[in-house]
Design a protein around this nucleic acid. Sequence first.
DNA 1: AAGACATCCTGTGCGC
DNA 2: TGCGCACAGGATGTCT
Length: 279
Amino acid sequence: MPELPEVETVRRGLTALVTGKKIKKIDVYYPKMVLPNETEFVKQLTNRTIQEIERRGKYLIFHFDQDVSMVSHLRMEGKYSVHSHEMPLNKHDHVVFEFTDGTELRYNDTRKFGRMVVVPTGEEYSVAGLKTIGPEPTPATLSLDYLTTTMKKHHKAIKSFLLDQNMIAGLGNIYCDEVLWLAKIHPLQPTNTVPVDKIAILRQKIFDELDLAIRAKGTTVFSYLDASGHAGSFQNQLHVYQRTGQPCERCGTPIERIKVSQRGTHFCPFCQKLVEVDD
DNA sequence: AAGACATCCTGTGCGC
DNA sequence: TGCGCACAGGATGTCT
């Protein structure tokens, strides 16, 4: 499932592959995927030229000429790829942007969860999801002060807090489990009871982990591929995600799997102990 | 208001 | 071998 590092990898790949290309024709094979509706989507984007591709959290934002933009979310299994017009379509290609130079940008999504929304440039942040999105997880945008203050206000499990895009943008199930293991925090620890020194460590681990994952071009589990069809390699550096029953790399205790917020959650019961705190 | 739960989807993997 | 079903999950909508 693409999280921030995977989406950033896709953004970089697409920037190199399609910037400057002009859309001649758009084919939509699954109308629910495009918003506000198919007719408007096709009308707004036909004859537009891609100028820049931006990322915010797990969202891609395509900027076109004529002040048109498109907000795209890959959700679970969305993939972009660029092919020549002659290449046969794949089974789950749902939206095809045909360029004037004979190549095509294709959006493939097995589970059909992804969505793309066309909006006037400047109104990207009126799109649901971006409207209330939390700070980007970088040292400049996610301050220790913000994190400490916000965490004090929430008492749900820290894993649920980290998954909430309105609190911090970009983390998904894989990286949440990983950073909690790195910071030695139990996924069910109430957010407001995480000790102050652990908050600082957690913040730093988030930055380090995302940097590392971007450098490895993302994590490929299940089906993620970048814009050139390449897998990432960060799955080789995961410590707990999908390692249920395998020994913890620090202490040898078998990794356990529980459910938190309906998400499979992996942790080391020895390294990540629930801390009792009176608050 | 915040949290719990269902919903959208299809492929995979299990049990029998 | 093959059928049926539970399961995977990001964001959102509904309900309490």
